[in-house]
Design a protein around this nucleic acid. Structure first.
Length: 279
DNA sequence: TCCTTATGTACAA
DNA sequence: TGTACCTAAGGAC
């Protein structure tokens, strides 16, 4: 379930389970074997997330100097299919799709199907930060930098929200849901989004994504709109969270009953309520 | 057992 | 804009 909240959660969980002690690093599938051989026995010293990019820092930092940088980073991007599985030691025999396994005396973690898993330098890592937009989950994020691009673009707000150079970490679910929550027509041009609307959407994303990290799932339905509150039978969305429009094609809108619409936008599925999202 | 689909991105044309 | 890539689950046969 790789949107930004998942990656920040992973950064935290990798650190919790593997910081400090030397880590046994392997690549059962083979595509990362050379790097694994270099890293094995080295401690994981730092983890970081920016948007959908995960960075695992190995080596150094073991001294008391907190400013010390890791010697090298593993750059991970899950893409559409990537999955991470944590478990307690002893680790079971890995299946042949495990790209990267970390193991220590108490825990193991398997990475499967990532679009990227590569050893990079600090400079290469910096280059990735430089090409990404602000991430609502990072304390250093500047929402104005994102609005600067949004406000001078003829591209639709739906496409801009998915553009990682504009804003990092928002994926198809948060995109659909934040537009619904603000009643905004997904086809409006970025330059027609007012500063007030952008501020509201940004702070909403910060809150929603923080909750996503906490719960490890995406919930966007306000308490007063839950099926219980609306006097309707309870419902489970098949992606594990409670949402207004994402993948609810043809189902009635929770607020007005109109059928949720879907369309192809830049090769991704777009979902929205044509009645509630007219702004 | 095969086909479709998916919360993503990069590159070619 | 189309296509390639990485994996696994669910549904159709």
């Amino acid at each position: 379930m790789p949107e930004g909240h998942t990656i920040h959660r992973l950064a935290h969980d990798y650190a919790t389970r593997f910081s400090g002690a030397p880590t046994h690093v392997t690549s059962p599938q083979g595509k990362f074997s050379d790097a694994a051989a270099l890293l094995t026995g080295t401690p994981l010293t730092r983890t970081e997330a920016h948007g959908k990019h995960l960075f695992l820092g190995f080596g150094s930092g073991s001294g008391s100097d907190a400013a010390e940088q890791p010697d090298t980073w593993v750059h991970i991007h899950l893409g559409l299919f990537g999955k991470v599985t944590f478990g307690d030691a002893p680790a079971p025999p890995p299946t042949d799709t495990v790209r990267l396994r970390l193991a220590n005396p108490t825990a193991y973690v398997d990475l499967r199907g990532p679009t990227t898993c590569a050893l990079i330098t600090d400079a290469e890592k910096q280059a990735i930060h430089d090409r990404l937009g602000p991430d609502p989950l990072r304390p250093d994020a500047d929402p104005q930098a994102a609005y600067h691009r949004v406000s001078r673009s003829r591209t639709t707000i739906a496409a801009l929200l998915m553009d990682q150079k504009v804003i990092a970490g928002v994926g198809n679910v948060y995109r659909a849901e934040v537009l619904f929550r603000h009643g905004i027509d997904p086809y409006r041009a970025g330059r027609d989004i007012t500063p007030t609307e952008w501020k509201a959407m940004w702070s909403d994303l910060v809150a929603l994504m923080r909750e996503g990290v906490r719960n490890n799932r995406i919930d966007t339905v306000r308490p007063e709109h839950t099926p219980e509150a609306m006097g309707r039978p309870p419902r489970v969305d098949d992606h594990g969270g409670e949402v207004y429009v994402y993948r609810r094609t043809h189902q009635p809108c929770h607020l007005c009953g109109t059928g949720i619409r879907t369309a192809d936008l830049a090769a991704r599925n777009l979902f929205w309520c044509p009645t509630c999202q007219k702004k």
